[in-house]
Amino acid sequence: SYIIKDLETAASLLLTVDPVITEGAKNYGEEVGSNDMNYRQYRLNYFAINALMARAYLWSGNTQKAGEYARTVIEKVSDKNTPLFPLIDADYMEANSDRVFSPEVLFSLYNTSRPDVVYKTLFVPTLATTSILTMAGDLATGRVNETYDDKNDYRYRMWESTVENNREVTYFIKYMDETRTGSEAYRYMIPLIRMSELYLIAAECETNVQTALDKYFNPLRFSRNCVNQNASSAEELKSLIRAEYVREFIGEGQLFFYYKRNALQHIPDGGTVNSIKNISLDSYVFPLPDSETSQRAE
Results as ranks from 00 to 15, higher is better:
224 R>E: 04
232 S>D: 12
251 G>M: 06
232 S>N: 11
229 Q>G: 02
242 R>C: 06
281 L>T: 03
218 N>D: 12
272 T>H: 06
245 Y>H: 04
216 Y>F: 15
228 N>S: 15
249 F>E: 00
285 V>E: 11
289 P>H: 09
285 V>Y: 15
220 L>A: 05
289 P>D: 05
287 P>L: 08
231 A>P: 01
229 Q>R: 15
249 F>H: 01
289 P>Q: 05
247 R>I: 04
275 S>R: 10
272 T>V: 08
277 K>E: 09
262 N>Q: 10
255 L>K: 07
213 L>E: 05
216 Y>V: 09
241 I>P: 00
235 E>D: 10
284 Y>W: 12
235 E>M: 01
215 K>Y: 13
242 R>M: 12
276 I>G: 02
290 D>E: 13
214 D>G: 03
250 I>D: 01
259 Y>P: 01
271 G>K: 07
218 N>Q: 13
272 T>S: 08
275 S>H: 10
221 R>N: 07
262 N>W: 13
291 S>E: 12
242 R>Q: 14
281 L>A: 06
256 F>N: 12
246 V>S: 04
266 H>Q: 10
275 S>I: 03
239 S>I: 12
230 N>F: 15
257 F>S: 07
245 Y>G: 00
287 P>S: 07
229 Q>F: 14
283 S>P: 04
245 Y>A: 00
286 F>W: 15
236 E>S: 03
251 G>K: 01
214 D>L: 06
265 Q>M: 15
233 S>E: 06
274 N>V: 09
285 V>M: 14
264 L>H: 09
273 V>A: 07
283 S>A: 14
223 S>T: 07
227 V>A: 13
245 Y>M: 03
244 E>R: 00
234 A>R: 00
235 E>P: 00
221 R>A: 13
286 F>L: 15
276 I>H: 03
288 L>E: 08
278 N>A: 11
240 L>C: 08
215 K>W: 11
265 Q>C: 11
290 D>V: 12
241 I>K: 00
255 L>M: 15
